[in-house]
Design a binder for these strands. Structure first.
Lengths: 242, 242
DNA sequence: TTTCTTAGTGTATTTGGTACACTATCTAAA
DNA sequence: TTTAGATAGTGTACCAAATACACTAAGAAA
């Protein structure tokens, strides 16, 4: 009797109770050597027709949340083995017009040109890169989800070298600084930035120079894979942080 | 036609698809002038019978996630108007033995003696304060949820004065240091701790002394409400952080 | 050869964190 | 009343990291 009561207490009338659809929304940030962008679809659901929406999908029965996010990222961009991190859950009662849908937001950061828009499913749905400042109005609560995700991305950029896959094999320090400035939305002092990067020991000179630039060429660097594996192996091996 | 396809894409076959129960698990940390504890129930569901579990409940149809967490905290402890923050969502497919249940974890930090175990529903279910080091085995994935929540609590303790409601009206600096040490699980240097507290300007001397202690009495302090409202009003007014 | 453009460099200051040991005050017991 | 025990309270020196700030160097193009 006691036991039965407790079961009910811990999973109160599970069959009669609210069951919600569970979705994952991926905030896929892209960097293209100039600007931070987000991958969006054009929403076709009233009352949000025509507004940009994030890329999301329902969670399948046989996958956990991280797996769903990984699948969605792969299905929509062709990218796998990338760092994906959960932002948080969003569960307003009216956040979806048709039904109660609780969504779990994830973010990822990729090179814009790694995403090829020749994928049938995506072309059909007009996925495109939207610059952040053009996204004032979004479908559902996606503007809020975007802001929370951007906030987390910016915190993480300083803690973890999320940028390591965003640049070509060889890059200059001004390239790297532009990347930071685009993502953080600020300008940075050149000397202090270089001092900090130098202290991290995450890049190494490769003894080459930029070519075909109409000004003084910059020295080229590459990611220091040894240091990266030593200090941040979780970013490479395991796409999830707990 | 295009429109119909897109609706399906964005909410793929919503009626046929996975619907999960949504629960909220509250990690209610308590401090009692000596030790950090967590409020737990004794689980009665196989295969976890007898193990401690966190305090959770299913989310109602008419409440969002934050409201559900607030309700659960209130129902189980009688406490409202306290800072509650979402930790993250946990959604392993097999995390619940009966059914797919996605849970959203929240944490709160309260005084142990604010929770009176004379609430009928709770007494019936043996809610009790468990010291953290006695919680190696827990029901479901609650050990993982506890660890994630503790990690966040410790980060927040340094960023935000979550401790302001945990001490009596008048307290000594050694009291405050004990609180920090209990929550962080470390010892702290007395002089450096006092320097830091002093810089924060969050406590003020009240010109009184401890009484009836068998040693040199300490000066008493109180929370500096002005500074708290100025810098951390969100901790008082709005129980949620975005 | 001059001009334009971007690359590259160092120092001084401040701030925050850390390491560290002795004196002061009260109670209780001898 | 003296002494022992317990806890309160205090300051300085060092180091690391963040910040502010301005000129010279190298190449391309005119």
């Amino acid at each position: 009797m006691i036991e039965r009561e407790n079961i009910n207490f811990q999973l109160r009338e599970i069959d009669e109770h609210l069951k919600a659809a569970i979705s994952v929304d991926c905030v896929i940030f892209g960097y293209d050597q100039s600007e931070l962008k987000v991958l969006t679809l054009e929403c076709n659901m009233a009352p949000y027709v025509g507004m940009p929406s994030l890329i999301g999908d329902l969670v399948n029965e046989d996958e956990n949340l991280d797996q769903a996010a990984t699948r969605i990222l792969y299905e929509r961009t062709g990218i796998s083995d990338i760092f994906l991190e959960q932002v948080k859950a969003f569960g307003e009662t009216d956040r979806h017009p048709l039904e109660r849908v609780v969504t779990i937001a994830y973010y990822a950061l990729i090179k814009v040109d790694e995403f090829k828009n020749d994928n049938g499913a995506l072309r059909q749905h007009q996925a495109k890169w939207s610059p952040l400042n053009q996204l004032e109005e979004m479908a559902f609560d996606h503007r809020l989800i975007l802001e929370s995700s951007l906030h987390l991305l910016r915190k993480r950029l300083i803690e973890y070298p999320l940028w390591m896959k965003l640049l070509p094999k060889y890059f200059s320090l001004p390239d790297l600084q532009n990347l930071f400035e685009a993502i953080l939305g600020t300008t940075l002092d050149k000397r202090n930035f270089r001092k900090k990067i130098s202290n991290l020991e995450l890049v190494r000179e490769v003894g080459k120079m930029q070519k075909d630039v109409p000004h003084r060429p910059a020295k080229l660097y590459a990611v220091n894979e040894k240091k990266l594996k030593k200090d941040f192996s979780f970013l490479l091996q395991n796409p999830f942080i707990n």
